[in-house]
């Protein structure tokens, strides 16, 4: 177990020293800052625009990071054969996979925290010195704590994406892994349509297939409460809790699969 911690810390260290990652975070922070300027162009909608853009930036750049690092984590070690030195130390293969996963989640956590800080800084600036009348026109306060629940679910979504990227990277190259992960992510956002599929088709078999896929494929829509939060609508705590649970169980299953494949494979 101790090994998992050391491996995770090393993943974090690797990403901290990666210039590409810096550029992604810097770009995200810049975009969040620019949302303030955009907001000034649209009277009345200013706060909504900042929130929409901020949350979208965190989600998108988080996704970019999760895929960009996730697909290379295992593959790079195997391809460059640094894994020879590591796996002959007293660790088990599942500890390696779990360590990599935890390390990447840790990295994402820190980066999302940085983006969130930038986001709140812009919101605070926007809300500064606004009079009571204008304040009342907003559906939600600028530094609404509910935003944090939206961000938390983004993070949970990223944990799922990371698990999937890691799974693919245990047996395929980075390009294929990226395509497959992104593909699943896109499909996972239209998952609800699969559910409705059975209402529009005649065929029994097709309906069953659609239903099976609906349960098997990840459902990324679950994690998207951005719109509700920005509108100031209440999101039930039970919904959030259930989504978090889903976001824990699914990666656990995916990682089990990754370990099963990884434990049996030869390193060329």
């Amino acid at each position: 177990m101790r090994a998992i911690g050391h491996i995770a810390v090393n993943v974090f260290r690797e990403s901290v020293r990666d210039k590409v990652l810096y550029s992604i975070v810097a770009f995200a922070v810049m975009l969040i800052a620019v949302s303030y300027l955009l907001a000034q162009l649209t009277a009345g909608q200013d706060l909504k625009i900042i929130k929409d853009l901020g949350l979208a930036s965190i989600a998108t750049f988080g996704l970019l990071m999760a895929i960009f690092i996730g697909i290379g984590l295992v593959w790079k070690e195997v391809e460059r054969r640094s894994i020879y030195g590591l796996l002959t130390k007293p660790i088990r293969r599942w500890e390696f996979i779990l360590g990599k996963y935890v390390g990447l989640v840790l990295t994402l956590l820190v980066n999302v925290a940085v983006m969130t800080a930038a986001f709140y800084a812009v919101l605070a600036y926007q809300g500064w010195g606004v009079d009571e009348l204008a304040r009342r026109a907003w559906p939600a306060p600028p530094m609404d704590p509910a935003l944090l629940s939206a961000i938390a679910l983004i993070l949970v979504e990223l944990m799922l994406v990371t698990g999937i990227a890691l799974f693919f990277s245990t047996f395929s190259g980075p390009f294929l892994s990226a395509v497959l992960t992104l593909g699943l992510w896109v499909i996972g956002h239209f998952n609800t349509d699969l559910r409705n599929f059975e209402n529009v088709v005649e065929s029994r078999a097709a309906a069953w297939l659609a239903r099976g896929l609906y349960y098997a494929l990840p459902n990324f829509d679950t994690f998207d409460i951005k719109a509700q939060v920005v509108q100031g609508q209440h999101v039930a705590a039970s919904y959030i809790a259930l989504s978090v649970l889903y976001g824990m169980v699914y990666p656990a299953l995916v990682l089990t699969g990754a370990v099963a494949i990884f434990s049996r494979r030869d390193f060329k």
Binding site: R13, R81, S82, Y84, T88, P90
Partner: peptide, 21 residues
């Protein structure tokens, strides 16, 4: 076996480790 790995050392052919360390 992890207990074995605890007590052995291995130099791979053309060793390669981590660029960033």
């Amino acid at each position: 076996d992890v207990e074995v790995k605890r007590r052995i050392g291995y130099l791979p052919e053309n060793p390669y480790f981590y660029d960033y360390l």
